[in-house]
Simulated scan of single mutants.
Amino acid sequence: MSNNIINTTDANFDQDVLQADLPVLVDFWATWCGPCKAIAPILEDLAEEYAGKVQIVKVDVDNNPQSASRFGIRNIPTLFVFKNGEKVDAITGLQPKAELAKVLDQHL
Rank of each mutant, 00 (worst) to 15 (best):
N12M: 10
N12F: 12
N12V: 04
F13W: 01
D14A: 13
D14R: 08
D14L: 01
Q15G: 07
Q15P: 06
Q15M: 06
D16L: 06
L18I: 04
L18Y: 04
L18F: 05
Q19W: 03
D21T: 10
D21C: 03
D21K: 13
P23S: 11
V24D: 08
V24C: 09
V24R: 10
L25C: 12
V26S: 06
V26R: 08
D27P: 02
D27A: 03
F28T: 00
A30C: 03
W32G: 01
W32P: 03
W32E: 02
C33E: 02
C33S: 13
G34D: 06
G34K: 11
G34N: 08
G34F: 02
A38E: 03
A38S: 01
A38I: 00
I39E: 00
A40Q: 06
A40M: 02
A40G: 04
P41S: 03
P41D: 03
L43H: 02
E44K: 06
D45G: 05
L46P: 07
L46C: 07
A47M: 09
A47D: 14
E48P: 07
E48H: 11
E49Y: 10
Y50T: 15
Y50F: 15
A51S: 15
A51E: 15
G52W: 07
G52P: 14
G52T: 11
K53F: 04
V54W: 12
V54Q: 08
V54Y: 10
Q55G: 09
I56E: 13
I56R: 13
V57E: 11
D60I: 06
D60L: 04
D60W: 05
D60K: 05
V61M: 10
D62E: 14
D62C: 05
N63F: 05
N63P: 04
N64D: 13
N64C: 11
N64I: 08
Q66M: 14
A68R: 05
A68C: 10
A68M: 09
A68Y: 08
S69W: 01
S69Q: 14
R70P: 14
R70N: 15
F71V: 06
F71C: 11
F71E: 07
I73P: 09
I73M: 05
I73S: 12
N75S: 15
T78K: 03
L79D: 00
L79G: 01
L79A: 01
L79S: 02
F80S: 07
V81E: 09
V81N: 14
F82D: 10
F82T: 13
G85V: 07
V88W: 10
D89Y: 03
D89C: 06
I91Q: 05
T92D: 00
G93Q: 01
G93W: 02
K97C: 04
A98M: 05
E99K: 12
E99V: 08
E99Y: 09
E99D: 07
L100M: 07
A101R: 13
K102V: 02
L104Y: 12
L104S: 09
